Simulated scan of single mutants.
Amino acid sequence: MGIKGESSSKLPSVSVIVPFFNEEDVALSSLRRIDDVLSNLKHRSEIIAVDDGSRDSTLSVLLDAKSEIGKLRVLSFKRNWGHMAALSLGLKNSKGDLVISIDGDLQDPPEYIPELIRTYLEANSFKNEIDVIQTVRADRSSDTIFKRNSAAVYYWVIRKLTGVNVTAHAADYRLMNRSSVDLINSMNSSMKVFRVLIPYLGLKVKLLEIRRDSRYAGESKYRLKDMFRLAIDSFLSFSSKPLRLISGAALLLSMLLTILALLFFFLWFSGSTIPGWTSIVLLVTALNCFLVATLGLLGEFVGRIYELAQDRTAAQVYKEF
């Protein structure tokens, strides 16, 4: 099948990871399109569909598709762990020399897969040692104004807080070579926000512009709370800068309070003070607010340390069909 010429034994094998969560309306169409694309290539290939604990009939659709698509493997979490966990599970179970991740909603067209592979092979034929081919959206005109603006704010904040040069408008449609996948698999799950992790590790990335399609069916599962959680995960997992900012602000505030205390003592000593409680209440309230905010941020980091120590990847029970 596929491209004539070079023997498939000389070509790198390909794994395509497709996470699904409540995508019963689109799952079969997505897998069929991916299979059609791979069938026209001479590379040995596999498709790994990861059901992220769907509550609809997505898993049944995936299992039915196995009888139609011979190269399909199905992994399923017992419960929903999130998009990053589903991608991580696919990476850990992949066997290909080249691993491609793509969302299952068909907004990222599978027809770009041959171009991803060709771009990687051409880049490395010149000894550039490219590790990742990352797709970026040529435009975001299909997104809502809120989503475009929130995405721009996200990338700006992440760059400022982490110091990592995150690629704007890059989602989870990318190709990674086996050495990159093995490196990522060796890391703790708490750091696996891939759009930040890949540049953080210093992997060599080449960009490929694509145009996204409209959603094939159903509604986006990536809601505002998920975007907010992604932003929190991104900077708490990769930067201690918020702690340093809080420490600096605390130092400045303590200096200011010391100066004010000395001023109030001088006024009291000179007999110029007026009895009252307003100034004391305001100072105590401001200090307590700052302390509470600081403790909240410290609590977030301590929680991350706790999760790292617990290493709950063992609790992410899954089954392969």
Rank of each mutant, 00 (worst) to 15 (best):
V14A: 00
D25R: 12
A27I: 02
S30Q: 05
R32A: 07
V37C: 11
I48N: 00
V50E: 06
D51N: 04
V61C: 00
S67A: 10
S67F: 08
I69T: 02
L75I: 04
K78Y: 09
A86F: 03
L89D: 00
I100E: 00
I102K: 01
L121A: 05
L121H: 03
D139K: 11
D139M: 05
R140K: 11
S141F: 10
S142V: 14
A152T: 14
V157T: 04
I158N: 01
R159L: 10
R159S: 03
N165D: 15
N165G: 12
T167H: 07
A171F: 10
D172E: 13
N177P: 12
S186Y: 14
N188Q: 15
S189R: 10
S190T: 15
S190C: 12
R195L: 05
L197A: 07
P199S: 07
Y200N: 13
Y200E: 11
Y200M: 09
L201S: 04
L203F: 13
R211S: 14
R212H: 12
R215P: 08
R223K: 11
F228D: 15
I232E: 07
D233I: 04
D233A: 04
F235D: 01
F238Q: 01
R244Y: 14
A249W: 15
L251P: 00
L252W: 13
T258R: 14
S272H: 09
V281D: 04
L283C: 10
L287K: 06
F290N: 02
T294A: 05
L295F: 15
F301A: 06
Y306D: 10
E307R: 09
A315L: 14
V317S: 04
K319I: 13
E320W: 06
F321S: 00
